[in-house]
Design a binder for these strands. Structure first.
Lengths: 344, 344
DNA sequence: TTGTATGCGTTATCAC
DNA sequence: GTGATAACGCATACAA
């Protein structure tokens, strides 16, 4: 029976159809208990017949704030960020909020554009994994009053919330694991160093190496141009090209995508994993466990990261006594076949 | 200098600060050419100083429609859908629209909830890969006036837009490829059959099989409970358990996740791929090409699917002469090592 | 219990 | 070139 006159029916039309006033319809919507059963039923019937749908923009304009959160992820091609997003969504669902998921793809201008749009939407909070935590448009956006929470990156300053995982520690445990398994020469595969996560993981690796008095040259850095499978494959190529004497028997990759690429190259080239090359990835995305040779990886609490970020943003948005908080999680090593957990 | 009095400044406050009327500020925003340079600069300075940000809800209320599109995907854990989403986003970006990305996770009630929310948001159009194309809430939502486009599933009826890929054809070319490579016995791995995509791919496989007069029993159906890596692994287990005489030398999986799981099991069990077991996947997600044994897969034009869906929704939303359209793409086989493209 | 009036921030129409 | 004003749909304070 929906009257498709071109525009959706409003409370006013529902009121007319039900023979009540606009205010009563609004009451049915927002405080049903205050309306008598008979009129309420009449109104509800009218809403059903007209196909009434609340107009969220009007509610929002009236309320002054939206009922949405936003997440700007760094790389839509990396499942890690989708898992973080899932965590955010679960927290948002509990609070009955929508989530805008955006993807900067590592582009600073796309990030800025998304931020701008989200500010205009008056989202309750913006969670983002920044391209560059120091970029001016972040500080600028923060001054606009919308809570901004850094995800997977600790803020440089104490004047904003952030949730991160200790990447230096992650680098340490990855290398410690390889050392425990008796490896003498290790390659760190990852780049560019402009990415904070890469820098920190490398730093952790070097710290352990130095602390144990290993020769500096035995921790080789194989830089990559990006954190992708293709770059991992290319790194494998370069690794294979090294003279056997200098070639590391183990690789620690800055993320699982690189590790998967490296693994693919190894298998294709007939290099036995972990026998001739042990591999440790980072993030523990589902595809790491699903690889032909299941990947040892440094697990980050992906969903928890998202959930916590959402909670912090929400607190900042609604709690006047909010104190900025820098949450830091600890990564954990998940040992699998790629470093010799099982024979294969 | 941003005055953080708690609420964001409005055009009215900008007008006051610049010493002009509200209408002039609006003109600066929407038709700068009609404003004199000097006043425009004065207004712009005021906006910058106050940190003015347009309120999208107010614009939207005024305009009657939002500047957003939505995509409700079926399985957030499957990269295929994220690639579709990326296609949608690229089309949306061209039209200067935002995209809400939601995930039903295969749950009919979550899908319904998302639809409801999106209707309230007055999005320009809803693209979705339905849990069940025949579910009543879809028809219900369609009657609300918001364009709904089915993605990766052809509509049962002609009264709505849809974009899909010919899954029956996809099933055919997968099996034809295996037959060309000399396989006599093939397993179809996939389920549940309540999923239309699975049904159609299986049907295509059976069609070719019958047309070529192959013994029905030689096309074995290994049903799975879901389209996941874990289920693929489990199917591998069952496959390995078959007596050698009946065991197929090739498997066609209903999607790449299953294929990846199957591959993992094979490699772990020392089954040579493709020597002892050839594998064909479906979707050609990036991880298929990145597998240890690169997977042969049936490619769907994922991004194109998304882009087309977005275009159709937008046309339906804005063009009064809109005609519903059922776009159907053709899948293509991408042959790789898992069916013996290269020695390994 | 129900009805009336006001304002949220923006845009567009009309005088000036 | 600029300013006043109405309207979008809803929620609420207040009047009846």
């Amino acid at each position: 029976m929906t009257a498709r006159n071109g525009r959706a029916p409003s409370v006013k039309e529902v009121a007319a159809a039900a023979g009540v006033s606009l205010g009563t319809v609004s009451n049915v919507l927002n405080r049903p208990s205050v309306v008598s059963t008979s009129t309420r039923e009449r109104v509800e019937r009218a809403m059903a017949e007209l196909g009434f749908v609340r107009n969220e923009s009007a509610r929002q304009l009236r309320a002054g704030t939206s009922r949405a959160l936003a997440y700007v992820m760094l790389d839509g091609g990396n499942p890690f960020f989708h898992d973080v997003a899932a965590g955010i969504e679960s927290a948002a669902e509990d609070a009955d909020l929508s989530v805008f998921v955006c993807n900067s793809g590592g582009g600073i201008e796309r990030e800025a554009k998304h931020l701008d749009r989200l500010l205009q939407q008056r989202v309750q909070g913006i969670l983002l994994t920044p391209v560059d935590p120091g970029a001016p448009h972040l500080a600028e956006a923060a001054r606009r009053g919308t809570p901004i929470v850094l995800v997977d990156r600790a803020g440089d300053t104490r004047d904003q919330c952030s949730v991160a995982v200790d990447d230096v520690l992650g680098g340490r445990i990855a290398v410690e694991h390889l050392l425990e398994r008796g490896h003498q020469r290790v390659a760190f595969v990852g780049g560019p160093e402009s990415v904070g996560q890469v820098r920190d993981r490398l730093r952790g690796a070097r710290e352990v190496w130095a602390e144990l008095g290993r020769p500096t040259d035995d921790l080789l850095h194989l830089p990559t141009g990006a954190l992708t499978v293709a770059e991992g494959r290319a790194a494998g190529e370069r690794l294979a090209g090294l003279p056997a004497r200098r070639r590391p028997g183990a690789a620690f990759c800055a993320n699982d995508l690189l590790a998967l690429g490296l693994l693919q190259h190894a298998v294709g080239a007939g290099v036995h994993v972990p026998g001739e090359l042990a591999i440790v990835g980072y993030d523990d995305i589902d595809f790491a466990a699903a690889a032909a040779v299941p990947l040892t990886s440094v697990r980050q609490p992906r969903q928890e990261l998202g959930r916590t970020a959402a909670r912090l943003a929400l607190d900042e948005a609604t709690n006047p006594q909010h104190r900025h908080e820098q949450a830091m999680f600890a990564p954990a090593l998940v040992a699998r076949a790629s470093t010799g957990l099982t024979r294969s």
